[in-house]
Amino acid sequence: MRRSKEEAEATRERILDAAEQHFASQSIAKTRMEDIAKTAGVTRGAIYWHFKNKEEMLGALNQRLIMPMESAMNGLLENNPDDIDAEKIQQAILSSLQHIAESKSAEQVSRVMIRYALCGESEILRERIIRNREGNIDRLKRLVEIGKRRGFICPALPDFQTAVHIHTHIMGIIHQLLSAPQAYPNGAADIKFSLNCLFSGLEPR
Rank of each mutant, 00 (worst) to 15 (best):
D35N: 13
S25K: 09
R3Y: 09
A188S: 14
L58Q: 13
I129W: 11
F160Y: 13
I36K: 00
R205L: 07
R128C: 00
L157K: 13
R44H: 05
K52L: 04
E123W: 10
K141A: 15
G75R: 11
E70I: 05
R150N: 13
L61Q: 01
R128A: 04
Q21D: 09
S105P: 01
P158D: 09
A183T: 13
H50E: 09
S96R: 04
P155Q: 08
P158Y: 09
G75S: 08
I130H: 10
E121G: 15
M57N: 06
N132K: 07
N53F: 13
S179A: 08
K192C: 07
S110C: 14
I93T: 11
Q63K: 12
D190E: 04
A18W: 03
M57P: 08
V42E: 06
R150D: 09
D159I: 03
K30C: 00
Q26F: 04
C154M: 01
L143G: 08
P81A: 06
H167S: 12
K88C: 06
C197F: 11
G147D: 02
P155W: 04
M33K: 01
Q98A: 10
S122A: 07
K30Q: 14
A37D: 02
L178N: 02
Q98S: 14
R205G: 12
K88V: 12
R205T: 14
A72F: 15
R2P: 02
Q98Y: 13
